[in-house]
Design a protein around this nucleic acid. Sequence first.
DNA 1: AAGTGTCGCAACCGCGATACC
DNA 2: AGGTATCGCGGTTGCGACACT
Length: 320
Amino acid sequence: MMGRSPASEDNGLKKGPWMPEEDRILVDHIRKHGHGSWRELPSLAGLNRCGKSCRLRWTNYLRPDIKRGKFSDEEEQTIVNLHAVIGNKWSAIASHLPGRTDNEIKNFWNTHLRKKLLQMGIDPVTHKPRTDHLDVLASLLQLLAAANFNNLLNNQPLDINALRLQWDAAMLAKLHLLHNMVQVLRNPSTIEAMNLISGPTFRENHQLEANTGNLPYGGFSPHEVTKLQSNFIDLEACQQQHQPMKDSSFTVNVPTSSTPPPHQLPALISASPECRPAIVKNKINPNEISNPSSTSTNFEAWGDFMEDIASDHYWRDIIE
DNA sequence: AAGTGTCGCAACCGCGATACC
DNA sequence: AGGTATCGCGGTTGCGACACT
């Protein structure tokens, strides 16, 4: 894979990708004479390059002790551990990884590790779980609270559309947060990530903590995670059934079972009125439910869940 | 098959640190 | 002590390869 622009001339000196012949000349010269002064090297070796370019080519590519190919798990973990301590000190990190160059490590970080950590909900700068989702939720709820307060001040009855809008916004924000949290927890690479940032003992510790109830990430037990995920599956099914409303009153679409691929969560859902069974619990028209016996359990569980997440205590507990 | 978007990575650029005169 | 040259580092660029539509 070539990098940089095609060879161009600047002050008569060649730039851009190195030709095999140039590599051979550089390697031959350094083997015979050492690099000495990099500034002098090009003229001594007969290369039409600047010394800086020669040094870079040698240290990043031609040096005989360079190890090429995929980074091992151990190397990956070393990089993450060192980065957590010293940050973007690529040359310092490279000094702990024989055969790896700072440039290679830097590229590997930017193209793989950084994204990997982000995907797992870990801030690649601080190496701590990201909290921006909570910030978004907090600001959204503040807006809603302000809106409610304003309504009280004006002593105006809230019309049904305003209520729906507020309910939608609050529920969407909460579900969005939940979705992200569950996604992190259900991702098989999360364990790997925790191994990376905590060392290989995380798996055992995690198991121990789960058994003793001392749980990381907001106190979710595996059972709770499973329950949350199944509720999301129901939500997705609800969304897929998406039927136009017959009139202005809420209708109920009973979720059907839906199985996502392994390790994959449903996409974020919209809080359309069809997907709000909790708020219409007392308005259900039994005639609209095609098979009440088979769906009532699902529905009740869903209603419980919606009540749970609508309560402030639930969220305080999670956030804390 | 062609067009478009994304990824991976070699190489370049700019700047601070250090060495040398 | 001050100026200049050189080195080394971290950030950025831009091209080819590959994936997706």
